[in-house]
Design a protein around this nucleic acid. Structure first.
Length: 728
DNA sequence: TCCATTGACGTTTTT
DNA sequence: CGTCAATGGA
């Protein structure tokens, strides 16, 4: 068979990876080096040259988008149906396993997936029920604790908490939470992975079956795998599976949510005869951009080592702009976008990337003023909208009445006279009897534990749900969704909101009906034995939809650095490059490689740019209501000066604080010379806190206080007379 | 039950 | 400065 189409367009390294035989393969793929292409060509190579059955291949990604893209591109290349191929996210594959083997996994046949919002509410409720102080035990932290433990593959008994009363309390909560989920048939995201792993641990026969069937594993974005995902891959591979992983340790930016870059090294250690291939030729950025990115990332220790190069042009130098404040920064960026567009380029080719979501607002404001269309990534997705979640909660109740998360959500939505008091009575009953809320409510009505009005309201609710279930049992999915929306009278509930909002909600509900009507059960889900309803609900949980309706208009793209990963733009503005903001203060303070992760984030950001990269920072930024002065990001210092072109602020504009009334150091030996004034924004040194910039001051003489924003320790108020600050 | 006021807090996000 | 959630009065 002629396979030249699989190899012709590849460079030597790519070809080596695609054609590797018999071994496990680690592809260290730099940014823009064609990693997806390699993955897909490998897939095609296995089938067309290695004669591996498509049924034996499992390809895993992190996002649904990546999975969809992979399937699509494989389809294009192979020119045959990719349906038999198993391509999906870790979560969707684990989910499918659990659906097929729910009995062996000791799950409820109709288990529901809860998203992190459901999980949060549930934990808040449990914390209250446990009588714990919500300030001392915030639900957010509980969520973090439990998910992190699950990501590490740990169940409560395995967690050490000797003489750690606090940890012991969290473990106890984990236990309570888990048994509650078991009772009510709820499974969270982390549980999907852990449970799928445990399924194989407990069922060697099942594991054996999958090992025989899935002989070839491909993993994308390997640097983002967490402990349990890695263990899962290892287990499935066994001694016979062939594993092909693609990743870039320099682009690992999700350590804070459990990803373990070390897995890249572990892979070489744990699997025999790993063939490592480096993809270093970059097809995206100019030479200057790559040189700058390489220089920056070289400051990280313990890298696997890679140096990107390009056969293309050097391009323009990196443009660095020092703005006086954040307004001026936004003004500058928008001005440059206008210039770009006036040269005949398109708005959609430009991206503004920032460290924190809050930074988007100003840019939106200035873009709006300049009438430049833009699109902000992130934000609420379709299935995360309140009205959609409400409607889905009704559906879930029809499907699995024990679903407490759904019960809580709709028990009084729309309001039907069931207040906090009644709900807590139901919860109490549920807790005492160990029953799900639904059954507890039935008991309460039967036993007359409720007063007249509450009883009527609750039994009306029970009646409503039961009636809906009965009536709709044989309706089509689309009709059920429509029926639920109608009979729940959800629209009545939203009518109290402002017109515009209400109309949007109603429109979304209509869209939900449309989605249900046109929903087709995938072959995979059918194979896994799912009903259309189960499949639909699972999809809603596992694929919350695009971050924003695919507006393929000609828009400037605004996004965080994290969501920029994997994308590329001819023109990129990385903004807010100030120490404290980027790298973020908390990353600087926390140890454990957080600063290196920030640097990788910077690397990711820079390597998004194809032609022109702007880096900007503000000398003064209003944050949390007060002005803060910070020094330019330390990452700027790590870029060789000869690659940079500094754009000086326009003449005549002086930062306001320079002319501010100078304060006077109150005694000698302190700041600078005795009696010498110091300025806001000046860099000072403190014996304990290190270096920082003077942010503000107040008082005079012995009582003079100064606020210093320390680079490592953050902002601190100091009494000048005692602080013993030094300046350069 | 609903709205308005008060208070705490303030990375990054996918599944 | 803004946001979000919790509280309290009508």
């Amino acid at each position: 068979m002629d396979v030249s189409h699989l190899l012709d367009e590849l460079n030597d390294a790519q070809r080596e990876a695609v054609t590797a035989d018999d071994n496990h393969v680690l592809v260290l793929a730099g940014a823009g080096s064609g990693k997806t292409r390699v993955l897909i060509h490998r897939l095609a190579w296995l089938i067309q040259v290695g004669h591996v059955s498509p049924l034996s291949i499992l390809a895993v990604t992190f996002t649904n988008k990546a999975a969809g893209e992979m399937r699509e591109r494989a389809q294009d290349l192979l020119q045959v149906s990719t349906r038999p191929l198993w391509i999906g996210t870790f979560h969707s594959i684990a989910h499918r396993m659990l659906r097929m083997h729910w009995r062996e996994a000791e799950l409820d046949e109709n288990f529901q997936i809860i998203d992190s919002d459901d999980q949060h509410r549930l934990l808040r409720r449990l914390i209250r029920e446990e009588g714990l102080d919500e300030n001392q035990f915030p639900a957010r932290q509980a969520q973090w604790f439990i998910n992190a433990r699950k990501d590490e593959g740990q169940r409560p008994p395995a967690i050490e908490h000797m003489d750690h009363p606090l940890t012991a309390a969290w473990v106890h909560l984990y236990e309570r939470y888990q048994s509650h989920c078991e009772r009510t048939g709820l499974v969270d995201f982390a549980e999907l992975l852990l449970r799928a792993h445990e399924l194989w641990l407990k069922q060697p026969d099942l594991l054996g079956h999958y090992r025989r069937r899935l002989t070839h594993l491909l993993v994308d974005e390997f640097q983002d795998t967490n402990t349990i995902q890695y263990a899962w891959i290892r287990m499935l591979a066994g001694d016979t599976g062939q594993v092909f992983v693609v990743g870039d340790d320099d682009q690992s930016i999700y350590g804070w949510r459990g990803a373990r870059v070390e897995n890249v090294e572990f892979f070489v250690r744990d699997f025999p005869r790993v063939q490592t291939v480096r993809l270093e030729q970059n097809y995206r950025s100019t030479g200057n951009i790559l040189a700058a990115a390489n220089a920056l990332i070289a400051n990280n220790e313990g890298r696997m080592g890679k140096n990107l190069w390009t056969a293309g042009e050097e391009g323009q130098p990196i443009q660095v702009y020092a703005a006086f404040n954040e307004q001026e920064e936004a003004r500058f960026v928008v001005e440059r976008i206008e210039r770009w567009m006036s040269e005949g380029r398109r708005a959609e080719q430009a991206a503004i990337v920032y460290r924190t979501t809050a930074q988007s607002r100003l840019f939106e404001e200035y873009l709006l003023k300049a009438s430049i269309p833009y699109r902000v990534y992130g934000g609420l997705r379709f299935f995360e909208r309140a009205e959609i979640r409400d409607a889905l909660a009704y559906l879930r109740m029809l499907h699995n009445p024990n679903d407490d998360a759904a019960f809580e959500r709709i028990i009084n939505t729309p309001s039907r006279g069931i207040g906090q008091k009644t709900v807590s009575l139901l919860r109490l009953q549920a807790r005492e009897t160990g029953l799900p809320l639904w059954q507890a409510a039935i008991e309460c009505v039967k036993q007359d534990t409720l007063n007249g009005r509450a009883k009527n309201a609750v039994s009306a609710f029970l009646e409503l749900i039961s009636a809906m279930r009965e009536r709709m049992s044989d309706w089509t999915l689309g009709n059920q969704v429509e029926g639920v929306i109608e009979q729940s009278e959800l629209v009545r509930h939203y009518e109290k909101e402002p017109r515009e909002k209400m109309e949007a909600r109603v429109e979304n509900l209509r869209e939900l009906t449309n989605a249900a009507e046109s929903f087709v059960l995938t072959a995979e889900d059918e194979e896994a034995g799912l009903s259309p309803m189960q499949s639909f609900l699972s999809h809603a949980a596992l694929e919350a939809g695009e971050t924003q309706g695919e507006a393929w208009d000609d828009c400037v793209q605004l996004m965080t650095l994290h969501s920029a990963k994997g994308l590329e733009f001819p023109l990129v503005f990385m903004v807010g490059l100030e120490d404290g903001l980027f790298p973020h203060q908390r990353s600087v303070q926390e140890s454990g490689g957080r600063l290196e992760e920030e640097r990788r984030l910077c690397y990711v950001g820079m390597t998004r740019a194809r032609e022109l990269l702007y880096l900007s920072y503000a000398e003064v930024r209003r944050m949390f209501g007060s002005e803060s002065h910070s020094r330019p990001s330390r990452f700027l210092d790590e870029i060789p000066a000869q690659l940079i072109e500094e754009i000086r602020p326009r003449m005549g504009t002086r930062s306001p604080w320079v002319s501010a009334r100078p304060a006077v150091a109150s005694r000698g030996g302190g700041l600078g010379e005795p009696g010498q004034p110091f300025r806001l924004g000046q860099t000072v040194r403190h014996r304990k806190f290190g270096e920082g910039t003077v942010v503000t001051f107040e008082g005079s003489g012995e009582h003079a206080r100064v606020q210093v924003n320390f680079f490592d320790a953050g902002p601190k108020w100091l009494v000048l007379a005692y602080a013993n600050l030094e300046s350069d």
